[in-house]
Simulated scan of single mutants.
Amino acid sequence: MHTLLITGPGGAGRTTVAAATALAAARRGHRVLLLSGDPGDPLTPLLGDPLPPGLRLARVDSGREFRDELVALQERGSALLGMVGARPLAAEELTELPGSEEFALLRALRRAAAAPGTDLVVVDLPPLHRAVTTLALPAQLRRYLARLLPAEKQAARALRPVLAQLAGVPMPAQWLYEAAARWDEELAAVQAVVEADTTEVRLVAEPGPAASDALRLGRLGLALQQLDVRTVVANRMVPRDCADPWLAGIAAQQEKHAAEWAADLPVVPLAHLGADPRGTDDLDRLAADGLVPQVPAPRRAWTVEDRLAADGVLVWVVPLPGAVKSDLDLVRRGDELLLTAGPHRRIVPLPSALRRCTVSGAALADGELRIRFTPDPGLWPRTH
């Protein structure tokens, strides 16, 4: 099964492109599931009711998921809540908190990826800056859980009643560790979908200077999470043969920026219809070569180059397309590396060989950050 994640700057038409992509794939005989996290209902005017053959639609009810999850959490922790005198909240008095939409969308993505009888899942993600943070959530939260509630500490649970008596305060209940294990399992399943070779990211933008800046930073954030952008949809392209000089100027500017994007990424141009698309006839008019995704190639790994014989170093190659030197910062802390790229940040564990080295330099060239590591004589095995 193939998963296509679609995002772009706000107002770029990503929902329309997601619908057009799903419809075009269904027209070609694919069994398509279109997943939307939009709180409104923009897809029904686009796709109609009933849906075209081969196409299914899944919507995310983030409010309901938030209520169900919090009520279930209260029930599992009822003993601890009762001990501290807490009054549980009823489902009808719960309103969702900021961030619940992202969690609900990720859970829905996991369910969609496991849905039987589906060839392609098209996901209408939030705007680009939110999409980057949403896709980074599973790995980040798993790291937090591992640090705050390490699994190996559960082995000491038999000592907690004794420790509670000695300390005079209640110890964390077993339900907390069980909840952490359940969350980690669910997050791992979502992370596996996001990072799978069969998952690709498509960006949608209306060509222009603001869109170019947004795409560069968004693509940089995705690359920091090791998520490759495979295509860019240049949306609402004005025809180049316009008689109106003003429209002809806009068309020229759009073509200039689309050509810059095409320098290192496939670009799929979609025409401006003169009005907002409505109905499957309009979506069919938007169909273009390259809109239906092909089977993606394996994602590019962060490789370690062995240059010990030539230069005495190992080099970690981190692809960061569009990065400039002023965007970047890195700090070594223990067995982890803190990488900053523009407004984005990621903490990554070092490969085992690099943990026995010290960072000796870094250079950015041709969209790659090359971090040099020199073996630590006290930790590196000696050769005879």
Rank of each mutant, 00 (worst) to 15 (best):
R230N: 12
L338A: 12
G82V: 02
V122P: 00
H129V: 15
E255H: 04
A341F: 01
V315A: 05
L73R: 15
T118A: 12
L145S: 09
L159F: 10
A210L: 13
L379C: 02
G312C: 09
T21A: 09
A188E: 02
S212F: 06
P9F: 05
R278P: 00
L291M: 13
A90S: 07
V84E: 02
L273H: 08
L176S: 07
L203F: 05
A164Q: 07
A258P: 02
A108W: 09
D38Y: 14
R345F: 01
S212K: 04
R64G: 11
A156K: 14
L51Q: 15
L159V: 14
T231H: 07
L227K: 10
A113Y: 00
S326D: 08
R110V: 11
E101T: 15
V60F: 04
M237V: 04
P319C: 00
R110H: 08
Q226D: 11
E185C: 06
E185N: 14
G361V: 12
A12S: 08
E178Y: 07
E102F: 03
K256Q: 03
S62L: 07
A181N: 08
G40K: 10
L5H: 01
L120Q: 11
A151G: 13
T118F: 10
A181W: 05
A205E: 00
A18T: 01
T198S: 08
G10E: 06
E102P: 01
G208C: 05
A275I: 04
D197M: 04
R356F: 08
P170K: 11
L105N: 14
P209V: 01
G208Q: 01
G342L: 01
L338C: 12
L203G: 00
